[in-house]
């Protein structure tokens, strides 16, 4: 097929994908990218933005389900996300401007698969999985296994992301996402990091740390997690985790920053994300976005 159709159901959308169409949700990546000449619009597009149900946020005992069409604005204003999946709110509140957050969707962010996407590191640290509707039924995958390179995923062209699922969080969980940004809005992450920790009796029993814009894909950093796990989350452990994240980074040199600066900043944002996550796990108030509230010198 060529041209544009608007799907009313998931089945219609999947059928269109099978016939060669690309899905379009908010269009803030696809259309803006085409206007900038990055790549022209696909010949066939299927609008999924009106499919009922895909914009819902549903809490269950097992966790929280975020429909693919959930906007960044909806994420930011959702009480449960702000409280228990705070890193995701830290990320979505930074996306573009008010207009971008109202228009851009979580699913679009995930499937665009940019190494600089802001929701990626939080979703990884929070144990996110993605559910796809496919011609042969639904398929669920860990987000860790989804991204393979800039703009590349393991999803087939006929697979429609329908929801992202985050498992229920334990008591005393805290998470945060921090990015380096040169101005307050309309930014792109130069480097970023997310952390999620579980505390038990003052000790870090589980730590997840992921870095953004520091490798071809957003990725967890096991060495950093190990440096933190089992410790009390004090300064030396945090610093060790931050250094481990910086060591794991594969930064590039470009107009946004040199590789040297990026690597140094990898340590800074990781340290801030970990500190904010621990503080939140302890019940301390670190306002969203953590990027703003952790600004300033660390001592």
């Amino acid at each position: 097929m060529t041209g544009y159709i608007r799907a009313n159901t998931v089945e219609e959308a999947v059928a269109a994908l099978a016939a060669g169409a690309r899905p379009i949700a908010g269009g803030t990546d696809l259309v803006v990218g085409a206007r900038q000449g990055k790549q022209s619009l696909p010949d066939a597009l299927v609008g999924i933005h009106r499919i009922p149900g895909l914009g819902a946020i549903t809490e269950t005992d097992a966790g929280i389900d975020l429909g693919t069409l959930v906007s960044h604005a909806a994420i930011v204003s959702h009480p449960a996300i702000r409280e228990r999946y705070t890193a995701l709110a830290d990320a979505s509140v930074l996306v573009g401007s008010h207009a971008t957050r109202a228009q851009g969707t979580l699913g679009g962010n995930v499937m665009h698969a940019s190494p600089a996407m802001d929701t990626g590191a939080p979703l990884l640290c929070l144990g996110g999985t993605a559910t796809f509707a496919t011609p042969s039924g639904d398929r669920t995958t860990d987000l860790v296994d989804l991204w393979t390179g800039p703009g590349e995923t393991t999803a087939g062209p006929d697979e429609l992301l329908v929801a992202v699922h985050l498992p229920a969080s334990a008591q005393a969980t805290g998470s945060a996402y921090v990015r380096l940004q040169y101005r307050r809005h309309m930014e792109i992450a130069v480097v970023g990091a997310a952390a999620a920790v579980i505390l038990d009796g003052g000790a870090v029993t589980r730590a997840a740390i992921a870095i953004t814009a520091l490798a071809p894909v957003i990725r967890r950093v096991e060495s950093a997690e190990q440096a933190l796990t089992g410790t009390s989350g004090g300064a030396p452990a945090v610093e060790a985790a931050a250094q481990a994240a910086a060591d794991a980074a594969r930064p590039i040199d470009d107009v946004r920053a040199s590789a040297t600066y990026r690597r140094a900043m990898a340590a800074v944002v990781t340290r801030r994300a970990v500190q904010a996550a621990i503080a939140r796990a302890r019940g301390e108030e670190i306002p969203i976005p953590a990027t703003e509230s952790t600004q300033g010198s660390w001592r």
């Binding site: 900038q36 040169y182 101005r183 307050r184 809005h185 309309m186 792109i188 107009v255 946004r256």
Partner: peptide
């Protein structure tokens, strides 16, 4: 934040509003 940077041949490296960083109202 605002600069037009050139490569060694004299081509602009950041001819767009993503990497040519104007200040925004929130700044």
């Amino acid at each position: 934040s605002e600069a037009t940077w050139f490569d060694d041949e004299g081509r602009q490296l950041n001819p767009g509003l993503l990497d040519y960083k104007l200040q925004t109202a929130s700044d």
